[in-house]
Amino acid sequence: MSGLLALLDDVAAIAKVAATSIDDVIGQASKAGAKAAGAVIDDAAVTPKYVHGFEAKRELPIVWKIAKGSIFNKLVILLPAALLLSAFAPWLIPPLLMLGGAYLCFEGAEKVQHWLSPKHHDVEEAASKKMSTEDSAHLEEQKVQGAIKTDFILSAEIMTIALAALETDSIWFEAAALAVVAVGITALVYGAVALIVKADDVGVYLAANGSTIGTRKFGEVVVRSMPGFLKGLTIVGTAAMLWVGGSIIVHSLAEMGWHGPEDGIEHVAHLFAGENGFGNWLVKAVIDGVLGVILGMLLIPIVSSIIAPALRALGLGGSKKGAH
């Protein structure tokens, strides 16, 4: 009997240690996820543009496809890669992040270039007409793949920030905490995206079936405001790509030993905003975004004239239009 009681005591002690470890993992994951909040917001702002133009019944399936691609990016590719790089080649992380930042700058600058083009509206109208006759399944797949590629870069930033915020030397603890961050952030981002893209349908339902005048009026306001909201969200998403891309490059340069750009931006932010936390963040975000536009504009001719033809020659290039 005493042996059984001793065994139960041991089991209870193990369970207590396990519960404490789980609490520690969740606590560290929450802290790490909070550090990555800026990139999370960017991810949520960027994604809705990829469902624009599709039938309402396809919106949630598209979001679900992108969400599955995002969780695959984080858990299957980025989590093991982050752990391996952190353990064996931490010096490789900043250069790889700079490549991702450059990609975001290119994507964002290309959008800006399209908006500034005098033929932009004609191109958009032609694209809409083409979309009505093009194979919708193929177009949807192209959009999803484009979204997953962009998500990969943003997810890499989220996972890297989260990894840097963890306070442990245990690779298993890091893996568990990063897995919690990956699942939690993906659910948060794509849950928000699903709500955004279906808000107009909810508005239509409330306008037609609301039990009070106020509810029906609210539904009408939602329906009328959603086109402008989605257009604004597209602008925010593009600005986010440029800001995050620029900030990744500046921070990665500092990690590699060149602190000049980051220190200069900090100095300018302090001159304009003093000790104001939000003001400092805003000035730095604007400067990072401007740097992102400049770098992206420089990359456009390089990508279109050199990189894209090389990828197509190797059979790796797809339709750029479809990805956007």
Rank of each mutant, 00 (worst) to 15 (best):
M1D: 07
S2I: 05
L4I: 11
L5F: 01
L7R: 14
L8E: 11
A13M: 08
A13D: 15
A15E: 15
A15W: 03
K16N: 15
I22L: 15
A29L: 12
S30T: 07
K31P: 02
G33P: 01
G33F: 01
K35R: 14
V46I: 15
V46G: 04
V51S: 14
G53V: 02
F54P: 01
E55I: 00
A56K: 11
P61Y: 06
I66R: 10
G69H: 07
V76F: 02
L79Y: 03
A81V: 09
S86H: 13
S86N: 13
A89T: 08
L92P: 09
L104N: 02
Q113A: 14
P118Q: 13
D122E: 15
E124Q: 11
E125C: 00
A127Y: 08
K129P: 04
K130F: 12
D135E: 12
L139R: 11
E141A: 12
V144K: 06
V144S: 07
K149M: 14
T150W: 01
I153W: 03
I153G: 04
L154E: 07
S155W: 03
L166N: 10
E174G: 08
A177F: 04
V181C: 07
V183S: 03
G184C: 08
G191E: 03
V193Q: 06
L195T: 02
K198V: 03
K198P: 00
A199Q: 13
D201Q: 13
V202F: 08
N209L: 05
G210D: 09
E220P: 00
V222N: 04
R224F: 05
M226K: 09
L233I: 07
G237T: 09
A239H: 02
A240I: 02
G246W: 01
I248Y: 04
I248D: 04
H259G: 09
P261A: 11
D263P: 00
V268C: 13
G274K: 09
G277P: 01
G277V: 09
W281D: 08
A285W: 02
D288T: 00
V293S: 03
G296F: 04
G296P: 08
L299D: 06
L299V: 06
I300F: 14
P301T: 04
I307G: 05
A308W: 09
P309Y: 07
P309E: 07
G317W: 07
